[in-house]
Simulated scan of single mutants.
Amino acid sequence: MIDLSGIAAIDQHAHNLVRSDVAAATPYVCAFTEGYDPEVVHHHARSTLFYRRSLRDIAQLLDCHPTEAAILDRRSQLGLEALTRCCFEAANLQAVYLDDGFLPDTILPWEWHQQFTSIQRLLRIEWLAEQLMNQVDRFEIFLEWFRSELNPPPKGVVGLKSIAAYRSGLDIQSIPLDLAADRFYALKEQYPEQIRLSDKALIDFLLHEALAIAAQYHLPVQFHSGFGDPDLDLRLANPLHLRPLLENPHYRQVPIVLLHASYPYTQEAGYLASVYPHVYVDTGLAVPFLSVIGMKRCLEMLLELSPTSKIVYSSDAHLIPELYYLGAKWGRAGLSQVLEDAIQSGDLSAQEAEEAAIDILWRNAQRLYQPFL
């Protein structure tokens, strides 16, 4: 089996850890499921293969018994900083790119994470729009402010991120200015205190604005695609819906990164990466959330058609530092298995497989984001 443990990875999409008080008030098992219904959390999530495998992995890392109680006790002994350092060192990460628009009121600042590795930011488009909409009442002022926040890209931001798949789906259309303005005022009336940007027309309009600016700088834009928590309509998260954007000649200079292997639309994502020069696909969430067989099958589907120069590693880690470690452990293990199979089947030579591993684990991400580091 190919040994990839010595290759330091770039985790090109993850999230800030939550504060210690938030973690203490959150059931540990919540980090191992995309469900949030109490019945799922308390009665079913501990029966997943991911959770049961992860207890053994974490216990081995922390040198304790493979039970949730023992792990929680060991975590408490270590404290968050020591625990995070242990997980990051074991993950062998040379850099992490954080989307800090997830649970923004509960997370540690991105600067806190810099003590463990090199950290860069991913700016969540919908989060930015919500912050600005809460502060202004006129659409013209909002739009000018929104554009100015993106142009030029803020210092430390290496890419943009969209959760349109969660809010309204990936079938993103061109929207007239007057309709966007109407929807702005409708949302202001619907949410007089704290805006939740959920209107499809306004989201689509703002994405086109952001993509136009990204095109000026060749700034990568990441799109959530595929599975996630129940707030998402999975049917609308199929990356094939993005075809109008991918065919738009104005955005051919924007690297589009499909997150989460677009699972279960993984073959579709691999196809898009194979035919559009500006489309890439990452492995996060599918690795490590799937079973061992599922992770291997997912990576195999990506490699069926997608060039190895178009696949990037990520963990989509969030809430707890253990997910950074689990993503890296199984990202390398799954990739090693798939590349070994490719050697045995004659698809790759041993040297080509090693180069592919380097590309996927860090070199492709470096090529994408280097201009903004």
Rank of each mutant, 00 (worst) to 15 (best):
Gln173Asn: 10
Leu179Ser: 11
Gln194Thr: 04
Leu187Gln: 06
Asp182His: 15
Leu179Trp: 15
Leu177Glu: 15
Lys200Asp: 08
Ala201Asn: 03
Leu187Tyr: 02
Pro176Cys: 10
Glu193Val: 09
Ile175Asn: 07
Ser198Cys: 06
Ala181Gln: 15
Asp182Gly: 09
Glu189Gly: 05
Ile175His: 08
Gln194Ser: 04
Gln190Ile: 02
Gln190Pro: 04
Ile203Glu: 13
Glu193Tyr: 08
Ala186Lys: 12
Ile203Asn: 14
Tyr191Ala: 01
Ala181Tyr: 14
Leu187Thr: 05
Pro176Arg: 12
Ala201Trp: 01
Tyr185Ala: 12
Leu179Pro: 11
Asp178Thr: 14
Asp178Phe: 14
Ala180Pro: 13
Asp178Met: 10
Asp204Leu: 10
Ile195Cys: 04
Asp199Glu: 07
Gln194Ile: 05
Gln173Met: 09
Phe184His: 10
Ser198Ile: 02
Ala186Arg: 13
Ala181Asp: 15
Leu187His: 06
Ile172Met: 02
Leu202Lys: 00
Ile203Trp: 12
Ala180Phe: 08
Arg183Phe: 08
Asp199Lys: 00
Glu193Asp: 15
Asp182Phe: 13
Leu187Phe: 05
Tyr185Gln: 13
Glu193Trp: 07
Asp182Ile: 14
Arg183Ser: 14
Ala180Asp: 11
Asp178Val: 13
Lys188Asp: 01
Tyr185Ser: 13
Lys200Asn: 07
Leu177Asn: 10
Ala186Gln: 14
Gln194Arg: 04
Asp199Ala: 04
Leu179Asn: 14
Lys188Cys: 06
Lys200Arg: 15
Arg183Asp: 12
Lys188Arg: 13
Tyr191Glu: 01
Ala186Asn: 07
Ile175Met: 08
Asp178Asn: 12
Ser174Tyr: 08
Leu202Glu: 02
Tyr191Gly: 00
Gly169Cys: 00
Ala186Leu: 10
Ala180Met: 12
Tyr185Lys: 12
Gln194Trp: 06
Ser198Trp: 00
Leu170Asp: 02
Ile203Ala: 11
Leu187Asn: 04
Ile172His: 02
Tyr191Arg: 01
Leu197Ser: 09
Ile172Tyr: 02
Glu193Ser: 09
Ile195Pro: 00
Ala181Gly: 11
Ile195Ser: 02
Lys188Ile: 03
Leu177Ser: 12
Glu189Met: 05
Ala201Phe: 01
Gln190Asn: 02
Glu189Lys: 08
Asp171Pro: 00
Asp204Gln: 09
Glu193Asn: 10
Ala201Thr: 05
Lys188Ala: 07
Ile203Phe: 10
Ala180Asn: 09
Tyr185Trp: 12
Tyr191Cys: 00
Glu193Thr: 10
Ile195Lys: 01
Asp171Gln: 05
Ile203Val: 15
Asp182Lys: 13
Leu197Met: 09
Tyr191Pro: 01
Leu202Asn: 06
